[in-house]
Design a protein around this nucleic acid. Structure first.
Length: 611
RNA sequence: GCCGCUGUGGCUAAGAGGUAUAGCGACGCCUUGGUAAGGCGUAGGUCGUGGGUUCGAUUCCCAUCAGCGGCUCCA
């Protein structure tokens, strides 16, 4: 709602002719005049329709405050369509105006309202002091459906028992912290600034100061790590044994599409939106919109089911400004979003279980572990899916925290598992997730033909095997921090380390020898940098360690003569003597099955600037 | 969004009512060095932004923005 305040010596109006949307009024209301008045020109906008009471509350408070501040004696509300090009429907506008008038009147102030929808002549005398003309834009607070009942929490054990939070003993540290935080609402222990932020600085992972809050930018090492994880996420899905359709979509979707609007309403008030002036768009918060919009046009037979659609989708969520966290909670994130279309619930459960297995495999690959927070949208959803969840608990030998949402709220999922790992600050952090969705196929009109040739809506699994690209990066950096805490130098897996090998020529005389060895290693797909600066050996070694190079070696007279390198192996924190071929073999073995990318910045350190 | 803390050259920081300091990095010269900092020198800052108090503010006050921590939130 937009408003223009004018403090006037007098204001007089006369309704002349009706517009199409005019309200019916008796003749005596067609004219009005007030002296010493705060005139409020009001335009109700389409966005106000869903939250009339909130907007009216906010506006009435501000109007009364303005009236007292400037010393006006009364208030006139004057419907005025010309402050916005995005008007609410007349009925909603009148409703809001009347409510606003009542609210102002109930505080004891004298207030009138000019008729809505009439061409009016008016005569105003503005006082012209500094506060006599003010404009306002009232947003109101988003109205949410009131939940019926309460959240229910309990633990489902590996033996299939349902144990109340109070009676539950045991469980991993992660599960205990999860219970404290989610179910008991206990405050987390405060630990100051987390150490992964130091690594973010080292690898050029930062907030972009010239953008909105929550947007990251990546200097070359971070950019390369990001792309490698993105490649990796794609490979995991494409090697999962499920038939995959890889797609690429856009990130803006029109709210004029009923399916988009409905889906957006389920997501709530964290939507990022763009107004081009003509149309309103929301930015996707996952790949759902794109994949569903595409798949609804596909001719699908039961013979092709099940199959998945995949994209690493740039996604946008308007997180609260105080809630953003580098690499973890951002307003722009990249979601390797995998949707699997299943024909019926048994199939959905089978593939859900397979995806769950993948999710666990991948976190174990980086040396970490998950605990499960299993959300159900209703008691019925729990009953329908508990056998499967119990089997998962048994398989992982882990008790799971169960959360049943209050009844009566429509979610697009019925079951969703959040996979949490315990970070360096003893915080459970959600990384991977998988969900069952029984609503969106119908909403987006996605169908397949069954054996009888009849159209059916599939069940859709939503899955982020490694979470967002950013969160997986977070998980890896946190893992490096945990390694450091054991007293050895922190390191990253070789496949993702920006400088896999650093060669350090003893002096200018050995630069060409180092360059030759570097080329041999590069031929094996290894990222090799050469410190060809004129720094001392001690300084070069120091820099290689600061850069977290997986392997580093000085090249001088001894190495050129013997053909053997004394290689500092960071992950073992010691020097190991080997030939260049042996080094290449070792790295090839370590990085087997992982994506490969060349260096994102000059290999010669003399050509590298600081970032 | 709420509460608290912070905001000084590219980075890490020190400082004080009178326009500022160091280290790293960068640049130049010397040094050709064997495993975490070789030496000397040069450049670089309207102390986050906007107001106010003051003869004078980067320092005090107010507002605002951003970061960090905690909360709320988190499909």
């Amino acid at each position: 709602m937009r408003a223009l305040y004018i403090h006037a010596d007098s204001m007089e109006f006369e309704a002349k002719d009706k517009t199409k949307v005019a309200e019916e009024i008796s003749d005596n209301l067609r004219n009005g005049k007030m002296d010493e008045v705060l005139v409020v020109f009001v335009t109700v906008e389409s966005g106000d329709e869903s939250k009339i009471a909130y907007v009216a509350t906010e506006a009435s408070k501000d109007i009364l405050a303005a009236k007292d501040r400037i010393g006006a004696e009364r208030v006139m509300l004057y419907p005025y369509a010309h402050l916005s090009n995005d008007l609410a429907k007349p009925k909603a506008s009148i409703e809001l105006l009347d409510l606003l008038k009542d609210m102002i009147a109930s505080s004891g102030a004298e207030v009138t309202r000019a008729p809505f929808g009439w061409y009016k002549a008016f005569d105003i005398k503005c006082k012209g002091h500094p506060l006599s003309e003010l404009s306002r834009d009232f947003k109101g607070k988003e109205e949410k459906p009131a939940p019926k009942g309460k959240d229910t929490y309990f633990v489902l054990t590996t033996g299939g028992e349902e144990v109340s939070i109070e009676d539950y003993r045991g469980g991993s540290d992660c599960l205990r912290f999860m219970i404290d935080k989610e179910a008991l609402g206990k405050e987390a222990p405060s630990g100051g600034e987390p150490e992964y932020l130091r690594l973010c600085r080292k690898f050029g992972i930062q907030w972009e100061a010239m953008s909105d809050a929550g947007h990251m930018s990546l200097a070359p090492p971070g950019a390369m790590m990001f792309d490698l994880i993105s490649d990796y996420a794609t490979a995991i899905v494409n090697n999962s044994g499920i038939n995959v359709y890889n797609v690429k979509g856009t990130n803006m979707f029109s709210l004029d599409e009923p399916a988009v609007k409905e889906h957006a309403d389920l997501f709530g008030d964290r939507l990022y939106s763009i107004d081009t002036g003509k149309k309103k768009f929301i930015l996707r918060y996952a790949a759902c919109h794109q994949q569903f919009a595409m798949i609804k046009n596909w001719n699908i037979s039961y013979r092709q089911m099940p199959f998945g659609a995949f994209e690493v989708a740039d996604s946008y969520r308007l997180e609260q400004s105080g809630e953003t966290m580098l690499c973890f909670r951002t307003r722009r994130l990249n979601m390797p979003d995998f949707h699997v279309l299943c024909s019926a619930m048994p199939e959905a459960h089978e593939y859900f279980t397979r995806l769950d297995g993948k999710i666990y495999d991948e976190i174990e690959n980086i040396g970490r572990d998950y605990d499960m927070l299993v959300n159900f949208s209703s008691r019925k959803a729990f009953e329908d899916n508990k056998d499967m969840v119990r089997m998962l608990c048994e398989k992982h030998e882990k008790d799971a925290l169960i959360h049943i949402y209050p009844e009566g709220i429509n979610y697009y999922w019925t079951v969703n598992i959040e996979y949490h790992m315990l970070d360096q600050m003893n915080r459970p952090r959600e990384i991977g997730t998988v969900q069952i969705d029984v609503g969106n196929a119908e909403r987006f009109n996605i169908t397949y033909a069954d054996e009888k040739g009849e159209k059916q809506h599939p069940i859709i699994l939503h899955c982020a095997v490694i979470g967002s690209i950013e969160r997986f990066m977070y998980a890896m950096l946190d893992t490096a921090v945990q390694i450091e805490k054991t007293g050895v130098p922190g390191y990253l897996p070789t496949w993702i380390t920006p400088d896999q090998v650093r060669l350090m020529p003893m002096s200018e005389d050995f630069v060409s020898a180092a360059a030759k060895t570097a080329e041999e290693l590069r031929a094996e797909g290894i990222r090799v940098s050469v410190d060809d600066t004129d720094a001392t050996v001690g300084k070069k070694v120091r820099r290689a360690k600061q850069d977290w190079c997986s392997y580093s070696a000085v090249i001088g007279e001894n190495e050129v003569g013997s053909g053997r390198l004394k290689v500092y192996v960071r992950s073992e924190n010691k020097d190991i003597e080997m030939t260049a071929d042996e080094l290449a073999f070792r790295i090839g073995h370590e990085t087997e099955g992982y994506p490969v990318r060349p260096m994102y910045l000059p290999a010669d350190l003399s050509k590298r600037c600081e970032f």
